[in-house]
Amino acid sequence: MSTPLLNYYEAIERASEQMLEAARGGNWDQVVKLEGACAVLINQLKQAAATRELGADERQLKTRIMKRILVNDAEVRTLAEPWLEDLDQLLAGRPKMLH
């Protein structure tokens, strides 16, 4: 059974998985929306963590969850790079150059 603190980590992990699915589908509005939800969860986690520490087993599970979140985040960023480059070009008023 998960503890309240682990519930936050698990919720952040689920949101990161949903962000990755949205990024794979090119739904960047959904990615941004989920990123905002993650920020709220992270703030709630920080507040909850100020009054409680995880036990040894919980820390191991937290580490596994955090690794999965980081992998998801890295893939989202990789998928976002071309989109961000296009946006940068558009904002700079330069057409995308084909090589």
Rank of each mutant, 00 (worst) to 15 (best):
N72I: 02
Q44S: 13
R68F: 01
I69M: 04
E35M: 09
K62V: 01
P82N: 03
V31Q: 01
A48W: 09
A74I: 03
L41S: 08
R52E: 15
A48I: 08
E85N: 12
N43V: 02
L41V: 04
V31S: 05
I42L: 11
I42Q: 10
V76I: 06
R59Q: 14
G55D: 15
E75G: 02
L79Y: 05
K62N: 00
R59H: 03
G55A: 14
A48T: 09
K62P: 03
V31W: 04
E75R: 07
A50T: 06
Q60G: 08
L41I: 09
D88F: 13
E35S: 06
L41W: 11
L61Y: 03
D57M: 09
I69N: 00
L45Q: 13
R59C: 01
L87Q: 14
A56K: 14
K46T: 06
R52P: 04
I42A: 07
I42R: 09
V76Q: 03
E81H: 03
L70I: 12
A50P: 01
N43Y: 08
K62E: 11
K33G: 00
G36I: 05
L41F: 11
V32K: 11
W83Q: 08
N43K: 14
A48N: 06
P82V: 07
L45M: 14
Q44V: 07
L41E: 09
E35C: 01
R52Q: 15
L34K: 02
N72T: 07
V32Q: 11
Q44H: 12
L61P: 02
V71G: 00
C38Y: 01
R52N: 14
T51H: 08
L84I: 04
K67N: 10
T63N: 13
Q60S: 13
L84S: 00
L87F: 13
G55V: 10
R68E: 00
E58V: 04
D73H: 00
L79S: 03
I69P: 04
V76C: 03
Q47S: 15
Q44G: 13
E75K: 03
